[in-house]
């Protein structure tokens, strides 16, 4: 029982952190932030790997592998597409450097 209480405590504290860290976001960054957060929940990949790796049943393995593919698309694609969006937000310094290349 004490383990569930520990997990519940982590859940509540993480909820406060989640609200707090983005409370000062500038409105131009709404879409990249959404996309970045979207990439972070792709970490369900960890769960997909754990479930797939622990089974002996073929059907569970097949469904699990499907979950691995979907979660990887979410995670990898999410970070790449966020990076592309943020290319547009480069500071003037970074832009100059690229011109000199």
């Amino acid at each position: 029982m004490s383990e569930s209480i520990a997990l519940l405590t982590i859940f509540v504290l993480a909820a406060f952190v989640g609200v707090e860290v983005i409370s000062k976001v500038s409105s131009t960054l709404h879409t990249p932030l959404m996309s970045g957060a979207n990439a972070i929940h792709g970490v369900i990949l960890v769960g997909a790997i754990i479930v797939t790796g622990a089974t002996d049943s073929t059907i569970v393995m097949i469904v699990g592998l499907l979950a691995v593919v979907l979660a990887t698309v979410n995670m990898v694609g999410g970070f790449v597409v966020t990076d592309r969006m943020l290319e547009m937000f480069k500071g003037p310094g970074a832009r100059k450097k690229e011109l000199h290349k």
Partner: peptide, 17 residues
């Protein structure tokens, strides 16, 4: 715990966002 923290962060931040 990692899934718990990451998911909760996104859930809370996403709701506010």
């Amino acid at each position: 715990t990692l899934l718990l923290v990451a998911g909760t962060l996104v859930g809370a931040a996403g709701t506010l966002l």
